[in-house]
């Protein structure tokens, strides 16, 4: 079964059509990279998957369950959408860490709030909180931030911030982890440490969708690559197909710049 099925997604902002009939599927433990020039709609597509934008048309299914159907009002209720969001994790270009919390608190916060709704929260509060903490600490350690847990975001470098943001997204145990140009806000020398972490996640068989401008990284790490242009999926295939043997002129033209 596909872990993700995207069918006929369309989205307009006013009169501008940003996404046109997007269809693709993704298998569990695969990495999908989305490339394309600015304004091609790739970030909007990612935001649609996280329901930060609501698609005008189309269906989104995860593991066979329909999470969103533009034709079904029931599926668009705020509470419904909030639950379904958790199938996706999101790492933003500008991190969006919570400045008043330490790195560790940033990773734990949402889990702690979620735990309060558990039926056994009162009776097993201590155990639950310890578990959340242990997991958060091990995630940060995995990101190479064991000695930075008590630091506030403004005390961290951009690369460290982005790694905290990745740990924060992983803490929610999403089915699919999305990255929106995760290295675009970073200095070149900090880009490497973030890419290294993503590569490591790929080796651990994490399902990921990565919007990126890092072409060689995309070629290396991906199982599938989508090239988007003007709201359409222009090219879709393995890295070898898209990078070495592109069929469309637009793809060749775009790749020629690198």
């Amino acid at each position: 079964m596909h872990i993700l099925e995207v069918e006929h997604i369309g989205k307009s902002f006013g009169r501008t059509e940003v996404l046109k009939d997007i269809c693709f599927t993704l298998e569990k433990s695969q990495v999908l990279s989305i490339i394309g020039s600015s304004g091609s709609g790739k970030t909007t597509l990612l935001r649609c998957l996280n329901f930060l934008e609501r698609p005008d048309h189309g269906i989104i299914r995860v593991a066979g369950r329909t999470l969103f159907d533009a034709a079904d009002e029931e599926k668009q209720k705020e509470s419904e959408i909030r639950k379904n969001r958790l199938h996706f994790g999101m790492v933003f270009q500008a991190f969006h860490l919570f400045p008043q919390y330490t790195a560790l608190e940033n990773v734990m916060l949402a889990r702690q709030l979620q735990a309060k709704k558990r039926a056994d929260y009162k009776s097993a509060k201590k155990e639950i909180l310890t578990e959340i903490r242990t997991e958060a600490e091990s995630l940060l350690a995995q990101m190479g931030l064991s000695n930075r847990m008590k630091n506030y975001p403004h005390q961290l470098s951009g690369g460290q911030c982005q790694r905290v943001a990745i740990a924060r997204a992983l803490a929610m145990k999403p089915d699919i982890l999305c990255f929106d140009e995760p290295t675009s806000a970073l200095d070149p020398e900090l880009t490497g440490e973030v890419l290294k972490v993503i590569r490591q996640l790929a080796e651990q068989r994490t399902t990921m969708i990565i919007v990126t401008h890092e072409m060689s990284f995309a070629r290396d790490v991906s199982d599938q690559v989508i090239f988007m242009n003007d709201g359409y999926v222009v090219e879709h295939g393995t890295p070898d197909q898209v990078f070495e043997h592109p069929r469309e002129d637009r793809t060749k033209q775009f790749l020629g710049k690198f």
């Binding site: 996280n50 329901f51 930060l52 909030r82 639950k83 969001r85 958790l86 996706f88 994790g89 999101m90 933003f92 500008a94 969006h96 860490l97 919570f98 400045p99 008043q100 916060l109 949402a110 709030l113 979620q114 924060r168 997204a169 929610m172």
Partner: peptide, 25 residues
Amino acid sequence: LGQDEAGMVLGMTKTQIFFRIKLLQ
């Protein structure tokens, strides 16, 4: 706006986002 969005993708409610994230800032 990124603070709202970061809260939303972590599954927080609007109330939680206001009181836990935005209020102190």
